[in-house]
């Protein structure tokens, strides 16, 4: 798994996460607006975070089989 496909997917997930949680992508959501009645930035960070974790879980648990 270290050198295999899963390893590459995890690196990709890391890079995607780094991109999502930093400038400039972050600045797109850094506005005083709401989504579903909640602050946009708050919703975005938690949603992206959850998706990233789900992605990582999918990669590693798939690799475990």
């Amino acid at each position: 798994m270290r050198r295999g496909l899963a390893g590459q997917r995890l690196v990709a997930a890391f890079l995607a996460g780094t991109l999502l949680f930093n400038y400039p992508v972050l600045s797109l959501f850094d506005r005083l607006e709401t989504a579903f009645g909640l602050p946009l930035l708050y919703v975005y960070v938690f949603a992206a975070w959850a998706v990233l974790i789900a992605l990582i879980a999918w990669v590693v648990e798939r690799g475990a089989r």
Partner: peptide, 13 residues
Amino acid sequence: YLGPTLGFALSWL
């Protein structure tokens, strides 16, 4: 908490 999440993505490395 975001930092550890990213860090653990690389835990296998």
